[in-house]
């Protein structure tokens, strides 16, 4: 029986290894940038919210491209009334800080 086994095909472990190597090579590329995108999106929203009131659900961040180049597409919807504002360029406090520093 043992002798017979020796002449049988090799075990299934090498197949498992090969499948995993192929699968993970793909998943690391695909899932890596996805996580980068969610971090980029969080940072972008935080930065914009410091200046303009926006709805975080209206921020779209997309990565595209082919083998040679990747493009990052950012689409942010800002309600018109938020940018028309009241005509002030910057808060008074900041201007004062600038003049005293000069």
């Amino acid at each position: 029986m043992n002798l017979l086994k020796m002449f049988q095909a090799r075990g299934s472990a090498p197949v498992a290894r090969e499948r995993l190597q192929i699968l993970l090579a793909h998943e690391r590329v695909r899932l890596g940038p996805e996580d980068l995108l969610s971090r980029l999106r969080d940072d972008l929203i935080a930065t914009i919210l410091r200046h303009v009131e926006i709805d975080p659900s209206k921020v779209m961040v997309k990565m595209d491209g082919d083998a040679a180049v990747s493009t990052l597409e950012i689409d942010i919807e800002i309600p018109r009334e938020k940018i028309v504002g009241d005509g002030k360029r910057r808060p008074f406090g900041d201007e004062e800080a600038l003049t005293s520093a000069a």
Binding site: R10, G11, S12, A13, P14, A16, R17, L20, Q21, L24
Partner: peptide
């Protein structure tokens, strides 16, 4: 050892 299960080296390499 019989090739029925991933080896330690396989898992470490992956």
């Amino acid at each position: 050892a019989r090739g029925e299960m991933l080896s330690v080296a396989d898992v470490l390499e992956i």
